[in-house]
């Protein structure tokens, strides 16, 4: 007997490689989207700060806009985007 595979369709789920499950600002899972977004993933990406904390980009931008000083909401260090 000979078995030939013609095509294989697998199923996978994607997830962010991050050191936490939930966004520290909106408390939603990273793999979901921030409360303002409808679609997860590309449309609601994560950003990492220099302090290694990460958030939904929309959440952190909103946070930074509302603050006089640009600090990470988790560790109070100055916020810098870490473009790795």
């Amino acid at each position: 007997m000979k078995v030939t595979i013609k095509s294989w369709t697998g199923v996978a789920t994607w997830r962010w490689i991050a050191n936490d499950d939930n966004c520290g600002i909106c408390r939603m899972p990273f793999d979901s989207c921030c409360p303002d977004c409808k679609l997860p993933g590309d449309e609601c990406p994560l950003v990492w700060g220099a302090c290694s904390h990460c958030f939904h980009i929309h959440c952190i931008v909103k946070w930074l806009h509302s603050q006089p000083q640009q600090q990470c909401p988790m560790c109070r260090q100055d916020w810098k985007f870490n473009n790795k």
């Binding site: 007997m1 000979k2 595979i5 013609k6 199923v11 996978a12 997830r15 490689i17 990492w48």
Partner: peptide, 18 residues
């Protein structure tokens, strides 16, 4: 920054058996 975790039991396969 994103990765996949596979669900090996899901999906479908087209095979030919001789």
């Amino acid at each position: 920054n994103r990765t996949l975790s596979w669900k090996p039991h899901l999906g479908n396969v087209n095979i030919e058996i001789e």
